[in-house]
Amino acid sequence: MIRGVLNKFYEACGYLAAAFMVGIALAIIAQIVARFRGVTLDATEAAGLCLAASTFFGLAHTFRHGSHVRINLIVSRLPAGLRRPVEIFNCLLGAVVVSFLAWHVSALALQSHAFNDVSPGLLAMPFWIPQTGVAVGVTAFAIALIDELLWLLSGGSARYEAPDEIGLDKPVA
């Protein structure tokens, strides 16, 4: 039950990240079109904020998809008995570090709100808004890492192995 909800949650974050990636393109298209019509529209800031949103909302989904790069050269050659504790160590370290980060990114968003920090460009975006997005994305990543840690501890095997892209992803033509 919880597992199903979590998987849906990571997936939803992934789609949100993709939507923001489309947002980058839309912002820049608007900028080009506006320029041709002689209107000054600066979309660099909006595009940048979409990029940040895309990156952070995408973290958990990308993690579950095995797309975060790591060097599993040694790990993959360890005997199963030794490999397990190493993977548990990795997820534990990741969970601790990313939870710590989630805490401080949330603090940053609160601080920006308290400081009344606003982006310098035409958008005049209060920074706490995109930073709250960052906090949500990093928290989702922390949850995914803790989820994975508990899964490993309960006897499961790692679900974040990178798929061999070449083998699986032949061109559709």
């Binding site: 400081f115 009344n116 920090d117 606003v118 310098p120 005049a124």
Partner: peptide, 22 residues
């Protein structure tokens, strides 16, 4: 500005115009 305000560094030089939206 934020770095000085939050105490990450104790002193710094800012360009006032950057904060026109604030």
């Amino acid at each position: 500005k934020r770095a000085v305000q939050s105490g990450q560094v104790q002193i710094g030089e800012i360009r006032l115009g950057v904060y026109g939206n604030e």
